[in-house]
Amino acid sequence: MTEPDQKFEEEIRRALCAASDLIVPAGDGLNKIRERTSRRPAALAWLLAYAINLPRQLARGGRMAASEVAATAHGYSSVGLVLASARRWPGRARHALRTPSIWVRPALATATALVLVLGVMLSIPRVRNQLSAQLASALGTSSNPGPGGEPSGAGAGGAQSSSATPWATGTATNIAGKPFLATMPPSSTQCRSQGSGGTATAHHSSETGYIPPAVGQGPSQTVGAGTNGGVAHLVGSAPLDVAAPGGMGPAPVSVTCSPSTAPAKPATSPPVTQLATTPVTSPTTTPTTTTSPTTTPTTTPTTTPTTTTSPTTTPTTTPTTTPPTQTNTSSTNNTASPDTPAASAAPTG
């Protein structure tokens, strides 16, 4: 550093010190500071101090535990000393209980943490519903209709799922040569078609297996989703897909009734093998399922509508009547997607 620089620095230093000498702070600074520090609520300061120290104490405890474990592993544990001191615990406990400052703070901190956790949990509707359902079931009340509630389904056919049983009990089989064949017990799911106009009903009750007719009009209907979240699709007298979207709603059911007039074509979609395993359905799968005519050509003209859609026809009998050409598939889960229909039949005959 050159000499002019040093001179300049000295000049700046002198000027700054001379300017600062003019500043005389007021004498009541300490009183103001004390007043402000004592203004804070004592309880808050108390809890804050504890909360600040808590992680440090936890870390210290962890270190002590680790060192104790290491000492135990090396054979010179201090467990004996601990046990010796443990004999004096009753007296210490009495002393601690008589001294609230020892236990009130942790107790309050624990209670506050519990209240916070409970508040956060109860503020989430899903968790709250689950808790209430579990409480209701624990108390022996089975009147919880589920978040879906009553299905609507008036007029246009309905999709109804019972929330008592999460999903239907139908079984799906994959037979060689037949891409997909669902065999449903008579009481699980039925698909019914009435008339030529497509009056159809899709009703699923996993408890009773009863499928009452609903009034559906027109060749293509999107059956209204009930308040349980179920959605039924009905395309004429052809594919009927009933599925309940996921969430906490009840059983997703996929029912497909193939039309009897469609030409036979090889199945274009791979067989769905993951059936009755995943009850959760995304709502996007149901509205568009099997609504296009291109997805229905899996049936042959030989299939009569009565075999597929009569109320007395069960899914187990339907494949046997028209094994090679027609398939009435009932699926109890929602793996059917718009791109991969749940039911497809290959003309094996």
């Binding site: 300017a19 600062s20 500043i23 702070p25 600074g29 500071i33």
Partner: peptide, 26 residues
């Protein structure tokens, strides 16, 4: 305290504000 108030006064160019700043820091 005095030194810090002078330091703050040189920075903020206001003695009262400098005192407040130092008291806040304390």
């Amino acid at each position: 305290y005095g030194t810090l108030v002078r330091l703050a006064a040189l920075l903020v160019r206001d003695v009262a504000t400098a005192e407040e700043v130092v008291q806040d820091s304390f």
